[in-house]
Structures are given as structure tokens and as C-alpha cells.
Amino acid sequence: MNKILEKIGELGIVPVVKIEKAEDAFPLGKALIDGNLPIAEITFRTSAAEESIKTLTKELPQLLVGAGTVLTVEQVKKAVSAGAKFIVSPGFNPKVVDYCIENSIPVTPGINNPTQIEMALERELEVVKFFPAEASGGLPLLESMSAPYSGIKFIPTGGINLNNLSSYLSYNKVHACGGSWMVKDNLISSGNFAEITRLTQEAVSTMLGFEFAHLGINEEDKDKALNSANLLSHLFYFPIKEGASSIFAGPGFEVIKNKFLGEHGHIAIATKDIHRAISYLKMKSVSILPETAKEKDGKLIAIYVDQEVSGFAIHLLQK
């Protein structure tokens, strides 16, 4: 898959932005970065779109900037010339799509029926926009409509909000979700960029769904591990479940038979999407320890990060 489209999938949410005044572009982009979501789809719904894209790509190179509501080839040319790295259109305009393909420009055209999906597959597109998502029938329609097709993913946009975000992202054919609830027009026009940052952080937090899973306790050998687990069970009625390398006392304590990472043990943090969690932590300069990765049925389910808290290592768990 194209690297830009891969990055969109890692980020998981695409803020769909309408900017009336180009001078609002920089603080808007900064607010998204501060909210841990360095991506923006600037829609060609206003005359400020082209200049806004220029400002963002020049002043905030860490921000992935694309152009939305692109209806013509001429708009594609303007957007790319301004610095846009991807193109999004509300419908499937063959002229726009074919021009982007011919010029190696990542494009996600809008679709909401099987015929349009097949038009995309015929052009070997791997990602399309499902629009307008909720008005077209929402997740139930997307699931039934996409069932016959493999090799293509969707970015639902239109009616996506904090309440249905996780439901959409849980579907394995959803690449990311587009939305404007964290970048509402009135927040931009009133200069309330602090609220945009707060809403963006809230969206990222909802997407990742970090939760404490359990505490790992390092012991030197199997006997000491069993003694510790039995003590927790005796005192608090926690059921014992022994595995190859550790013993669980209830769901909250994992006693390690042979000391592993962390001076004292580890803190396990569960997440809704371990791959997006890894991408998020890397943005915060936290390294991952790939040699600790555990898979099940070919899918990553656990991995340690190169970080400790008070002598406890940290590892991520897929919920």
C-alpha cells in the first residue's frame, strides 16, 4: 500500500476541515498536532483552501495534509501544487481518479454502492471513502456491501462522531474514519483552538481505548512465583491459572516464573488497536521492543515498549 495511505491508517482518524480564512490554518494545524493527531484534510469548500494547504505544508511539515471535496482535475493540480499529499473526493469522478492514478497521487474517492466499489477495484485502488456514511446506512450497510470484496478498505466519513467512532474502527475493513466534530466551523472561526486540541485528544483517546490490564510481578523461579500467586489467592480468593512462563492470580496479577523485563515486573496496558497504539507512542518518542512481540493466529497481541515506570516495564495488549 502507498506510504501515505498507510500513514492515514496508522493515525486512524482524519479531521475534515473547512477553513474560511487562511490565517486560521497555522493555529488549526498546531491544535491538531498538540492533540496527537498530525493530519488534516482541507476541503475545497472555500476560497482559502489552497492558501491554507500552502501554509500548513510549509510551516508544519510534521502535519500530513490532504485536500478534500476535490471535484475537478484542476482542483487536484492546485491542491498538489500547494503541497497536498493526498486527494479525497465526495463521489467517484473517473476523470479525477484516473488523473491521480496516472500521476501517482494517493486518492480516496467517495463510494456508497457496490458498482462504485467495483470501479475502484478495476483501477486497483486499495482505499476508498465511504460517504455519506451514516446517511447511506451506516456500519450495517458497509458490512453487508463490502462483504463480497477483498483487497479494499474504507474510510467512513459523514456522521462519524465520538459515539460511533469505535464501532466503525472495530470493523476490519475500515482503514480510518473521517470526521469534523473536533474541528467544527464555529471553533475555527472563533479562534477556540484550545477546544479543538481537547476534542482531538478525546478522539484519539477514544480510538486507542487505553486501560490498565494487569500488574506483572517478577520472581526468580517457579517456586517463588507459585508462592506469591498462592498468597494472593489465599488472601483475596483470586483464582489461580498457571501458564508456561507465568501464573495469574485473578485477572489483575501475573507472577512471572523467571524474571523478565523491568526491575520489579511490568504494567500491562490494554488497547483497542495495538498497531495504532504503537504509532501513537512512537510519535511521543517511545521506542518499541520488537523482539518481545507475541502473535496469535498471525496477529500481534502483545509487545513491550522501551520504557519503565518505577522499575516496572510496560507492555501493550490487544483487547
Rank of each mutant, 00 (worst) to 15 (best):
G179R: 09
S170Q: 04
G158Y: 14
Y168L: 07
S205Y: 05
G191C: 02
G191F: 11
G209W: 07
S190L: 02
V183C: 14
G191N: 06
F193N: 00
G209M: 08
A176M: 07
T197I: 01
N192V: 02
Y168V: 01
G179K: 11
R198E: 13
V183W: 15
L162Y: 03
T200W: 04
L165D: 03
I217S: 09
I217A: 06
I188V: 08
L165I: 01
F210K: 04
E211S: 14
H175P: 12
T157I: 14
I188H: 12
E195F: 06
F210L: 08
S167K: 15
S167F: 11
L187W: 11
G178V: 06
A213R: 15
I196V: 07
G209Q: 06
R198W: 04
G216Q: 00
L165S: 01
G178K: 09
S189R: 12
N186H: 15
T206G: 07
S190C: 03
S190H: 10
Y171S: 01
V183F: 15
M182T: 10
F193R: 04
T157R: 11
R198C: 06
N186E: 15
V183G: 14
N172S: 13
V204F: 01
S190Q: 10
N192Y: 13
A176I: 03
F210H: 09
L187N: 09
F212V: 02
N161E: 13
E211M: 09
L208Q: 09
F210Y: 07
S190G: 03
E202H: 11
G179V: 05
A203W: 01
